[in-house]
């Protein structure tokens, strides 16, 4: 509409898919280390070091998926990038300050004189909380169509709180896998307590999204779509129930299946994400701009796609390598 060329069809779809995948990977991976940051105030000082040890080798690479996601929005849908980010100006600024605080607190807490360590621990928590809340807040505004108004703001505050607790749950399940003894027992409790909020949050979003847009209502509540989509909420409910039962019985003997709660929570986040993606496709700015209208020129997208196809498998490969090297229970971090 703006550029006067007929938008190619498959390139915008591929890039929307890549962007969606990056967001999902980001939410799960940075979700667990943001979550660990959120849980820090609940732990003893020795446990804090162990919790940092559980995320230390990974957090930087996890955060790179956010750069990837916003980078894809920037390069593939440049017009939408401007529209969305100017509409989300304030929460983006809060998130950025939060990301700065937690990223540097991670390093400073280990290097400053012992007396200042507690302050940097607090900064780590504050940064994690600002990041998590503002991301949830932006999700809420996005669902409400990036419009102002008290109702949208109130809903955004709710999603902000839900996502914050959601991250703490995924962080807790990561600790279930990476920690042992009393810390693992605590983590199981944190995960159980937070699961309620995740259930409430997912329900709230499921109700609000179709109410905010007649088009999305149509997409979900007409036949046969309703029946075809039914597995999505049913699978979410089943996962949630299974997770709850599992968390009550864990840890199992020999710490078997300690990875399962994290995997189940990730699957839960993935299901919620698929539901949202289905609701909004093909819009990148809700109800205003489709991915086809916002896409960059095909010849530029092709150049990026070639690089992505070659490099993404390599990135996946060495990410797996890093997680393999640091597999098993977390230890205190040391450079030497």
């Amino acid at each position: 509409m703006l550029f006067g060329y007929p938008p190619d069809v498959w390139l915008p779809v591929v890039f929307a898919g890549l962007m969606g995948l990056s967001i999902l990977i980001y939410v799960i991976l940075d979700g667990f280390d943001l979550g660990v940051g959120l849980l820090m105030p609940l732990a003893t000082d020795a446990e804090k070091d162990r919790m940092i040890g559980a995320i230390g080798p990974f957090w930087d690479a996890n955060e790179t998926w956010l750069v990837m996601a916003v980078g894809l929005l920037l390069v593939a849908f440049p017009v939408a990038h401007g529209t969305i980010l100017t509409a989300l100006y304030l929460p983006v600024a809060v998130m950025l300050v939060g990301l700065i605080l937690r990223g540097v607190a991670f390093e400073f807490r280990a290097k400053v004189p012992p007396a200042r360590k507690a302050s940097w621990n607090r900064a780590f928590f504050a940064g994690s909380a600002m990041t998590a809340f503002s991301q949830g807040y932006m999700l809420g505004l996005y669902i409400m169509g990036l419009q102002g108004g008290a109702a949208a703001q109130a809903f955004a505050v709710l999603t902000g709180l839900f996502l914050t607790v959601g991250y703490s749950v995924i962080g807790a399940t990561w600790l279930v896998h990476k920690a042992e003894g009393p810390l693992q027992a605590k983590a199981l409790g944190w995960a159980r307590e937070g699961l309620w909020a995740v259930a409430l949050g997912m329900a709230a979003i499921s109700v609000a999204t179709p109410l905010a847009s007649p088009r999305i209502w149509e997409r979900w509540f007409s036949l046969p779509e309703f029946l075809l989509l039914a597995p999505l909420p049913l699978a979410s409910a089943a996962l949630m129930a299974g997770l709850w039962l599992m968390l009550r019985r864990m840890p199992f003997a020999d710490d078997r299946l300690s990875w399962l709660p994290f995997a189940a929570t990730s699957a839960l986040f993935a299901l919620a994400f698929v539901g949202l993606a289905y609701s909004f496709f093909p819009y990148v700015v809700p109800e205003r701009m489709t991915i086809f209208e916002a896409a960059a020129a095909p010849e530029s997208l092709v150049i990026i796609l070639i690089g992505a196809v070659v490099v993404l498998p390599v990135i996946a490969g060495y990410s797996v390598l890093a997680y393999t090297i640091f597999r098993g229970k977390a230890t205190d971090l040391r450079y030497d």
Binding site: A61, T64, V67, M68, G71, L72, L74, V75, A76, P78, A296, A297, E299, S300, I303, I304, G307, A308, V311, L312, I315, Y318, S319
Partner: peptide, 17 residues
């Protein structure tokens, strides 16, 4: 964006990760 985009994308793909 058609110029800057791919250059930034290559930075993320080849360097950041």
């Amino acid at each position: 964006g058609n110029i800057a985009g791919p250059l930034l994308a290559y930075e993320i793909l080849t360097a950041f990760f």
